[in-house]
Nucleic acid binder design. Structure first.
Length: 553
RNA sequence: UGGGGAGUCGCCAAGUGGUAAGGCAACGGGUUUUGAUCCCGUCAUUCGUAGGUUCGAUCCCUACCUCCUCAGCCA
C-alpha cells in the first residue's frame, strides 16, 4: 500500500522551513474540542498532522480545546483518544488541555489590558452585534472602549472573582472596529460562564475564547505549523495579532487546508448529533455513521482509512470526494488481510440426488496467503446456495446456475441442476441437482464450466445475523441545499437485517474480525453485539466490485 | 455591492516560465474453481474566460466569470 507521500502545499512549506533553517524539527498538533465524536473529516486531519510528524520525524501533540464547558464531556474526550490510537497514531507526551493553560492565559490577558490592548465591555451581546457593523459597513466603537487601564484591570479581576452575572461583561481585544475583517472588530476574548468544567471544575467562572486560546496554546507548546481548515483563514490575522502583542517567545504559523466533503455523507457535528438525537441511527457508532467509531464498527480498517487520506491528498480547493475512493482504499486493505470464507445470505435449498461417495475438500483461507491456513469445506446431500445464483430464465451472459446447466461449487464439484421444485404460487423453493464425481479438484472432460457459485452444507452451516449496510443518504450531497432538510434524503434501505448462514469455521471469531464472504463482500463481526459461538453477527463493510451487476444496468 | 480564498480529466490531485505526474473511476484485453484479486493497454495538444508580456505561459500581468467563506459572549 502506501508509497512515498504526494507533495502538497504544506509539505512544500515544511521543506522550505527545514531547508532555510527556520526550523530544525517540526511540531504539529491535533486540537479537537471534546464536544462530539470524531468523523471522517477529523480522520483526514489526524492523518495529516500525525502523518507529517511521522514523515519528518517531528512531534504531534493531542490537545483538547476545552474552552467551552457547556458542551464538553469526558465521554467525548475519551472516545477521541481511542479513535486517534485506533487510527494508529500516538501523540507526543501526555495529552494536553487548553484548560491547563488557563492561568497563563489569564496572565496574558492582564498584559494586554496593561498595554491598553484589551478592555472590559459592558454592552450586551445584542448591543455588541449592533455596534459590530456589517460586511459592508464598519462597526463603531463601544462607549466602554476607552476605559482606563486601572479600571479594566479592576473589572477583569472582578469578572474572575465572580462578581458579575453570566454574560454581564466580556473582555475584548482592542483592535479596529472599522476593519474589513470582522474578526478584528474588537473580538471578545473572555466571557463569564458559570459552568462546571470537565477538568477545572468550578475553579473558573470566566473562560477564554477560541481565537485567543488557540494561538497561545500553540505557542506554549512550541508548535511550528498550526494546521486547520479553511474557515479559520479569516482568523489568522487575529491569531497573529495576539501573539504579536503579548510577551511570548514562540510564534507558530497557521496554515489552512480545505475540509473533506465525502459523497453520500455529512460531516457536520451538529447534523450528526441530530441523527443520533432523533434516533435516525442507533448511535454515534452506528455503522452507517461517518464517525470514526461508526466506520470502525462497520469494518473499515485503520490502514484503509489512512490509505484513503493519502489518496485524497491535501489542498486548498473545495472538493467533494467520491465514495468510490473510500471504498477502493478499504477494499484494497481488506483484500490483503481478510480470510475468505463462504456465507449464504438468501438461501435456496439444493438436494444432491447422487451425493453418495462425495467427499469434502480442504481450502485455503486466502488464495495468495497460504500462511492464513486452511479448513475443510464440508459438503453434504443438502446445500444452501444463493437464491440469486439460480435463474430459470437467465439473461444473456449468465454464467451461474440454470435448469439443465452446470456450475462449479466453489472448492468442490461441478453440479448440474436437473429439476426445479416450486410451491403452489410458483416460487422456486428447491433444486434437485447432481454432481459430477470426476470434477473434484479437476476440470470436467470435454466441456468448460465457466460459472462458480458458493454454497454451504445445510448440516454444517451455522445461522448468523447479517446486517447489510448501504449508504445513509440517497443523494451524493444531502446538505447541499440549505432549503431542504438533509433528513429528507435518508436512505430507507441503508440497513437490512437478514438471517443467513455462515460456514462453521468462523464460529469462534472474536468481535471485529474481518472476513471476505466469497462473491458477496467484506464483512466484520459486530463490535457490540457479536458473541463467539452463541450469537454471530456480521456487518457488511463493503461489497466486492461487481462487473456483472454493472453489466446488467 | 466590504474582506479573505478557490477554479488543472467524471472524482481527488501534482506541477508554478521550457512544452500536463499519480490515484480512484471508466473502457478494452489476458489469467482465474470468487463475474473478486492480479496483469497488460487506453484515458487532458490542454490547465475558468478574454487579452497582454515572453523565443516559449497552467505558471507572470490585466480584466472578467463562477464558486466558497466571514457579521457567536461556539470551535
Amino acid at each position: 500500500m502506501s508509497t512515498t507521500p504526494t507533495s502538497n502545499f504544506i509539505r512544500t512549506i515544511i521543506d522550505a522551513d527545514l531547508a532555510s533553517g527556520k526550523h530544525s524539527i517540526i511540531v504539529t498538533r491535533f486540537p479537537p474540542e471534546p464536544n462530539g465524536y470524531l468523523h471522517v473529516g477529523h480522520a483526514k486531519s489526524i492523518c495529516l498532522n500525525f502523518g507529517l510528524a511521522e514523515d519528518y520525524r517531528g512531534k504531534c501533540n493531542l490537545r483538547f480545546d476545552d474552552t467551552n464547558p457547556e458542551k464538553e464531556s469526558n465521554e467525548y474526550a475519551q472516545s477521541i483518544q481511542d479513535d486517534v490510537r485506533w487510527l494508529g497514531f500516538q501523540w507526543d507526551g501526555e495529552v494536553r488541555w487548553a484548560s491547563d493553560y488557563f492561568e497563563q492565559l489569564y496572565g496574558f490577558a492582564v498584559e494586554l489590558i496593561e498595554k491598553g490592548l484589551a478592555y472590559v465591555e459592558d454592552l450586551s451581546a445584542e448591543e455588541m452585534r449592533e455596534y459590530r457593523g456589517t460586511l459592508t459597513q464598519p462597526g463603531k466603537n463601544s462607549p466602554y472602549r476607552d476605559r482606563s487601564v486601572a479600571e479594566n484591570l479592576d473589572l477583569f479581576a472582578r469578572m474572575r472573582a465572580g462578581e458579575f452575572a453570566d454574560g454581564a461583561r466580556v473582555l475584548r481585544a482592542k483592535i479596529d472596529m472599522a476593519s474589513p475583517n470582522i474578526n478584528l472588530r474588537d473580538p471578545a476574548i473572555y466571557r463569564i460562564r458559570r459552568a462546571h468544567h470537565i477538568r477545572t471544575g468550578d475553579a473558573w467562572c470566566i473562560y477564554p475564547m477560541y481565537d485567543y486560546t488557540h494561538c497561545i496554546s500553540d505557542a506554549l507548546e512550541g508548535i511550528t505549523h498550526s494546521i486547520c481548515t479553511l474557515e479559520f483563514e479569516d482568523h489568522r490575522p487575529l491569531y497573529d495579532w495576539v501573539l504579536d502583542n503579548i510577551t511570548i517567545a514562540c510564534h507558530p504559523r497557521q496554515y489552512e487546508f480545505s475540509r473533506l466533503e465525502l459523497h453520500y455523507t455529512i460531516t457536520s457535528k451538529r447534523k450528526l448529533l441530530q441523527l443520533v438525537n432523533e434516533q435516525k441511527v442507533s448511535g454515534w457508532d452506528d455503522p452507517r455513521m461517518p464517525t470514526i467509531q461508526g466506520m470502525r464498527r462497520r469494518g473499515y480498517t485503520a490502514a484503509g482509512l489512512r490509505e484513503f487520506a493519502r489518496r485524497i491528498g491535501v489542498s486548498r480547493s473545495e472538493n467533494s470526494v467520491d465514495m468510490a475512493i473510500m471504498e477502493g482504499a478499504i477494499r484494497e486493505d481488506l483484500e490483503a488481510r481478510a480470510p475468505r470464507v463462504m456465507a449464504v445470505i438468501n438461501p435456496l435449498k439444493v438436494t444432491l440426488t447422487n451425493f453418495e461417495g462425495a467427499t469434502s475438500r480442504e481450502a485455503d483461507f486466502h488464495p495468495n496467503h497460504p500462511e492464513f491456513g486452511k479448513r475443510i469445506v464440508p459438503i453434504s446431500a443438502s446445500l444452501y446456495i444463493e437464491a440469486d445464483d439460480f435463474a430459470e430464465a437467465p439473461p444473456p451472459g449468465w454464467k451461474r446456475l440454470t435448469l439443465g446447466g452446470e456450475v462449479r461449487l466453489r472448492h468442490s464439484y461441478v453440479m448440474r441442476c436437473d429439476e426445479v421444485i416450486k410451491d403452489s404460487s410458483g416460487n422456486v423453493i428447491e433444486l434437485l441437482c447432481s454432481i459430477d464425481h470426476a470434477t473434484l479438484g479437476k476440470n470436467p472432460e470435454g466441456r468448460k464450466v465457466k460459472g462458480v457459485i458458493h454454497y454451504l452444507s445445510c448440516e454444517h452451516a451455522i445461522p448468523a445475523e447479517i446486517r447489510l449496510y448501504d449508504r445513509l443518504f440517497t443523494v451524493a450531497e444531502p446538505d447541499a441545499d440549505r432549503e431542504i432538510d438533509f433528513c429528507n434524503y435518508l436512505n430507507p434501505e441503508s440497513l437490512k437485517v437478514v438471517q443467513g448462514w455462515v460456514e462453521a469455521s468462523v464460529k469462534d471469531a472474536a468481535p471485529e474480525t474481518h472476513y471476505q464472504f466469497e462473491r458477496l463482500g467484506y464483512f466484520c463481526t459486530d463490535r457490540r453485539d457479536h458473541q463467539p459461538v452463541s450469537r454471530p453477527v456480521f456487518n457488511r463493510t463493503v461489497t466486492l466490485k461487481d462487473s456483472w451487476t454493472k453489466e446488467q444496468s
